[in-house]
């Protein structure tokens, strides 16, 4: 039974997306949820192309100047560590993030 549960966990872990594994898992532990970051990006960059590009630039080279967090939060939490994901995986993760929270197609 124990073997089966371990197998199930391993399988689920293998099936989880790059975004789920590398982004959601960490952000869940933070007081500010991941969607809040999305709306801040949207507020600043408007389109899908520009938003995704801004996120990618920040994750590859996190700096205070690139961050969309306000200065108070930045001082408290600082900037995150540089992502170790490859360009391809990073793009895939960001795309999933965009598709999950984008406004287009969700308004009635």
């Amino acid at each position: 039974m124990r073997v089966f549960i371990i197998f199930l966990i391993v399988m689920l872990n293998l099936q989880a997306s790059v975004y789920q594994k590398n982004c959601v898992s960490c952000h869940e532990k933070l007081p500010v949820k991941i969607d809040k970051f999305f709306y801040r990006y949207l507020l600043k960059y408007s389109s899908g192309i520009e938003t995704k590009y801004a996120i990618k630039i920040y994750l590859q080279d996190p700096k205070k100047e690139n961050s969309i967090l306000n200065p108070a939060l930045l001082n408290r939490f600082g900037v995150k560590k540089k992502s170790k994901l490859s360009e391809k995986k990073l793009k895939k993760a960001i795309s999933e993030y965009w598709d999950k929270y984008k406004v287009i197609g969700k308004l009635k």
Partner: peptide, 20 residues
């Protein structure tokens, strides 16, 4: 999406893609 009887409206992003 917020509606108003006096006018119709639409919103677009920075690359002219229609949001609604």
């Amino acid at each position: 999406y917020p509606r108003n009887k006096k006018f119709k409206s639409g919103i677009y992003d920075s690359v002219y893609v229609k949001i609604f």
